[in-house]
Computed example of a mutant assay.
Amino acid sequence: MTPTLRSCAPLAAVAAVAVLTACGGSPKATGTSPATSQATAASSTTSSASASTTTTSTPSARTATSTTASQPSASASARPALVHRTAAQLKKALLELSDAPSGFAVEPPSKDPGVKMASTNPRCAPFVKLSNAATAPGSTATADVSLSGGQSGPFIDESIDALGSAAPVAALQARFKAAIAACGKVAVSIPGAGTSTVTVRPVKPPRYGQKPLSARMTATSGPLAGTEITLVTTGVGDTVLSLTFVGALPDDIDAAASVAVEKATEVLRTRAAS
């Protein structure tokens, strides 16, 4: 999803905003106490001794055990089941005002086409197609939200698309990575603001989710000169989470991505079986 600017003037530099509040914490791994380890070792030793005695007296049992062990387990060969999600489930995983600093507002759904990209360079065709798509390729359900920090921004758009399993999510991320690398310049048009030529370059993505990617587009001329649009996409299980930022500082982008991925992970895990 791409943002909708509500002013014809180029965005000015945005003052630093408070870091988005984090949601919850990641579960901690549980360790094994020394007493438990000793008991386990003793049990293992006893079991080994018993198994050794049985093998010596009954060679046929050893043969049977070896044959059974070579059989592939059903769980190892089974493919993971597809996860079926609804737009209502995905909507609950989106950012809300409670996740953002004070001063932010939820923007109503826009009826205009928003930001559109174009290029005459064939190498940019994949990037243009993916960027202009209303939903991720292969999406079975989608939800989105737009937040703004005022007339001057920052503007944040988030969308979550369900793809059924982690495999198509990884494939889409690889496809988008190649598209970003192949395209260095596109034309960006925003209703009410005009069209400008912008450079496209990959940047270090926030380190959240699976196979995260990020691209920064900077207008070098025209009415949008100086405007920066940062795209972030990452995998969250069987879904792809996309964030678009306009007029946002690097720290705000990282914080928003952290909260968005953590929330989506928590909500979608609890509803994965529903």
Rank of each mutant, 00 (worst) to 15 (best):
M1K: 04
T4F: 05
R6Q: 08
S7Q: 14
P10S: 03
A13M: 07
V14D: 04
V17H: 01
V17K: 01
G25F: 13
P34E: 03
A35N: 10
Q38M: 14
A41G: 03
A41Y: 05
A41W: 06
S44F: 12
S47C: 05
A49W: 14
A49G: 10
A49R: 12
S52R: 13
A61P: 06
A61G: 06
A64N: 08
A64Q: 13
T65E: 08
A69W: 05
A69L: 13
P72T: 09
A74H: 07
A76H: 00
S77A: 14
A81R: 14
V83I: 15
A87W: 06
A87L: 00
L90I: 07
S98W: 05
D99N: 12
S102Y: 09
S102I: 07
G103A: 07
F104E: 05
A105T: 14
V106Q: 12
E107Y: 03
P109H: 12
P113S: 14
T120V: 13
R123Q: 13
K129Q: 12
K129E: 10
S131Y: 05
S131K: 00
S131N: 05
S131T: 14
A133R: 02
A133P: 01
A143D: 02
A143K: 02
V145A: 09
S146R: 08
S146Q: 09
S148Q: 13
G149F: 15
S152T: 11
G153E: 11
G153M: 10
P154F: 00
S159Q: 10
S159R: 12
A167V: 12
P168H: 04
V169A: 02
V169T: 06
L172I: 06
R175V: 08
F176T: 07
A179C: 10
A179S: 09
G184E: 07
V186I: 14
A187F: 04
A187T: 11
A187Y: 04
T195L: 03
V198P: 02
V200L: 03
R201L: 10
R201N: 11
K204R: 11
G209N: 03
G209E: 01
Q210S: 15
L213A: 08
S214P: 03
T218W: 00
T218D: 05
G222Q: 13
L224K: 03
A225C: 02
T227H: 00
T230I: 08
L231Q: 12
T234H: 02
V246T: 04
P250G: 11
D251R: 02
D251N: 09
I253P: 02
A257H: 00
A260N: 01
K263F: 02
S274P: 04
